[in-house]
């Protein structure tokens, strides 16, 4: 459903973030994108909805070539692509409800959005999602009153109310504690299964990724160096992605220790 061909991104500073990445994600597939900081993970998913303009290469979502769209068409296709962010990226001074409804901005006209007069169907859907992510009591709370885990749940609801076909998830757990991280990953993968969404999750925490996804793609210096099932990530493969390290030691380590060197930014 998502097809990326020979994607290249070079920043004006001359840094090549992506050096010809080709990737296909099928309907309903949940994929994790791993790799060291600066490998191009963020750039890759931002090229998909063109928050970052690719230098060359092509991206198709089903039959639409995203890389060929004009601004107006791009805004229409963005409605079908939900995005979840590392630091939640909520508008802190708006309420939980307003943050969730902002996921419908691509569907309503300007005055509806200005006066917060969203269609009843949107509001019903927002209440259903609030219930699903367990935040029914927080409708009119301001986003900055919530904890990290709660904020990410709002972020998830905002992405899902777009009724997307594809979810782009950028380090959803990087600012969360281990327990909340698992809950958020479980929620994202469950919701994706319920709705049959394809998902790309950028993630630093390899064991967490292995726990929840069917496919892992390893990126190193803008190139794909691993693409396979989670249990195929042997210490050798991890060294291909992250560079040499005593992977065996860290994988059997007690949870109090750092799970992996790269779990830190």
């Amino acid at each position: 459903m998502l097809r990326i061909e020979q994607l290249v991104k070079r920043y004006p500073t001359g840094d090549a973030a992506l050096r010809g990445v080709s990737l296909t994600v099928s309907e309903g597939q949940v994929m994790a994108l791993i790799g060291p900081s600066g490998a191009g993970k963020s750039t890759l998913i931002r090229c998909v909805n063109r928050l970052v303009e690719p230098t060359s290469g092509k991206i198709w979502l089903r039959d639409t070539e995203i890389t060929a769209l004009n601004q107006r068409q791009l805004r229409r296709i963005r409605r079908r692509i939900g995005m979840i962010f590392q630091e939640y990226a909520l508008v802190e001074r708006l309420s939980v409800m307003e943050n969730i409804l902002s996921g419908r901005l691509g569907y309503v006209n300007f005055w509806q959005s200005w006066f917060r007069r969203f269609p009843q169907s949107d509001i019903d859907q927002a209440f259903n999602l609030l219930e699903r992510v367990g935040l029914s009591d927080f409708v009119d709370k301001r986003a900055d009153e919530l904890s990290g885990g709660q904020r990410q749940r709002v972020g998830i609801a905002r992405a899902l109310i777009q009724s997307p076909d594809l979810l782009l998830v950028d380090e959803p757990t990087a600012s969360l504690d281990p327990k909340t991280s698992r809950q958020i990953m479980r929620l994202i993968t469950e919701l994706a299964r319920e709705r049959g969404l394809a998902v790309i999750i950028n993630i630093h925490d390899v064991p967490l990724a292995q726990m929840f996804v069917q496919r892992i793609v390893g990126l190193r210096a803008g190139e794909i160096v691993y693409d396979g099932p989670p249990d195929g990530l042997t210490p050798e493969r991890l060294s291909d992605i992250y560079g040499a390290e005593d992977w065996g030691a860290s994988q059997t380590a007690v949870p109090e220790q750092e799970p992996l060197l790269t779990a830190q930014e």
């Binding site: 909805n49 928050l51 805004r75 229409r76 296709i77 963005r78 409605r79 692509i81 995005m83 962010f85 990226a89 909520l90 508008v91 802190e92 902002s102 996921g103 419908r104 901005l105 691509g106 569907y107 959005s113 972020g155 905002r158 777009q162 782009l168």
Partner: peptide, 10 residues
Amino acid sequence: PLEAIRATGA
């Protein structure tokens, strides 16, 4: 948030 709102198609 600016990026997030743009990503919704606004």
